[in-house]
Design a protein around this nucleic acid. Structure first.
Length: 346
DNA sequence: AAAACGGGGTA
DNA sequence: TACCCAGTTTT
């Protein structure tokens, strides 16, 4: 613990009071706050991993109206779950949540502690602490990127971290020292709300921050550079895909169940799926080139028009009626591209 | 086009 | 610790 963190920990009661009063008057009204249940907390936390609040809102409401509790989710089909998740991205989360519900309903009672939640699929240290504190009242601190940023700035700590995991590890003791054990859920939500709305990565609103007077880094010109967390270098990748039409139908690839990535979703098939890896297609078959970014990869997808394959279809390739494409699940980018290409008359 | 948002699992 | 998962929105 640095001198700044000892100083801050010594002022923990003032910190908790100012944070709590600010949160009471400034918190956003969010559907998982205005109506609370363990299930709503779990679903919101899984959706909020890697995804911003504004994006989650419509998905959360639709999910709740269709799958209102753990029992309904456990009884739902994989297709239903993926369809409700379509467009949110990082589809593994949907499968984790589905598995989690099926494990939960077999338990004699809901998990209560972070350690119990941590054992379930898709639940790491942060999510376990968030659920246990917010939904179960356990006095555990949760440390996400927001909390790291707040604590690094409060202590003016410009230590460089190789990874975000290293930063989380560094600031966990301070987060625990500051935790309001009388209201751990409210305290954790307030910390994350502060990070999401005032102590933002760029242009933090120090002038209206409730804990600015306790902040060693407040309004310093370098505060935007804290915390210092290394970023992985981006890597270029290229994928060639096939646009194959037959009257009223489009050829898609259904990603097998056992796949780590996007299991159960559909994509445009790659040329390899069609056995076209030998030799490049004629240049004039190139329909369009699209780019997408995912974590550290910048992926270029080249889409070529190809004639329908002769003979039996390879496993996992399916003809889908153009009118029925809305009923199957594609990743966000592929759904957009397919719509655009169909609308353009291809 | 770049930057902001930023957690879990696995080897 | 490094790397994968297979992204949307804002600037």
């Amino acid at each position: 613990m640095t001198p700044e963190s000892k100083q801050l920990a010594a002022n923990r009661q003032a910190f908790q009071r100012r944070l709590g009063e600010w949160f009471a008057r400034s918190q956003r009204k969010l559907p998982w706050r205005t109506e609370r249940s363990v299930y709503r907390t779990v679903v919101s936390e899984l959706m909020l991993q890697q995804t911003q609040v504004a994006t989650v809102l419509p998905y959360f409401e639709r999910w709740m109206s269709r799958l209102p509790d753990f029992e309904a989710l456990a009884a739902a089909s994989e297709e239903t779950v993926l369809k409700l998740w379509e467009g949110l991205g990082y589809y593994r989360r949907a499968r984790f949540l589905h598995r989690l519900a099926r494990e939960i309903i077999r338990l004699p009672a809901l998990p209560r502690t972070a350690a119990e939640w941590r054992a379930l699929p898709g639940i790491g240290d942060y999510t376990a602490a968030a659920i246990a504190s917010i939904a179960c009242g356990e006095a555990v601190a949760c440390v996400d990127g927001n909390v790291v940023r707040i604590l690094a700035r409060l202590t003016a700590d410009d230590t460089p971290f190789a990874t975000s995991a290293a930063a989380v590890k560094r600031f966990t003791p301070l987060a625990e020292a500051l935790l309001d054990e009388c209201a751990p859920g409210r305290h954790n939500e307030a910390m994350m709300e502060l990070g999401a709305t005032l102590c933002t990565k760029r242009r933090p609103a120090c002038t209206v921050c409730p804990v600015a007077s306790l902040c060693a880094g407040r309004a310093s010109p370098e505060i935007e550079a804290i915390p210092r967390i290394g970023r992985a270098k981006t890597e270029q990748r290229e994928v060639r895909r096939a646009w194959v039409r037959r009257d009223g139908e489009l050829l898609l690839h259904r990603i097998p169940k056992g796949s780590v990535r996007m299991a159960g979703l559909h994509e445009l098939p790659t040329l390899e799926h069609l056995g076209r890896d030998a030799g490049t297609p004629a240049p004039d078959s190139l329909l369009t080139t699209r780019r997408r970014t995912i974590t550290r990869y910048q992926i270029t997808e080249k889409i070529h028009r190809l004639p329908p394959p002769k003979g039996p279809l390879a496993a996992d390739l399916v003809w889908v009626a153009v009118d029925a494409i809305g009923q199957i699940t594609l990743s966000g980018p592929h759904r957009r591209w397919v719509r655009e290409l169909l609308a353009a008359g291809h």
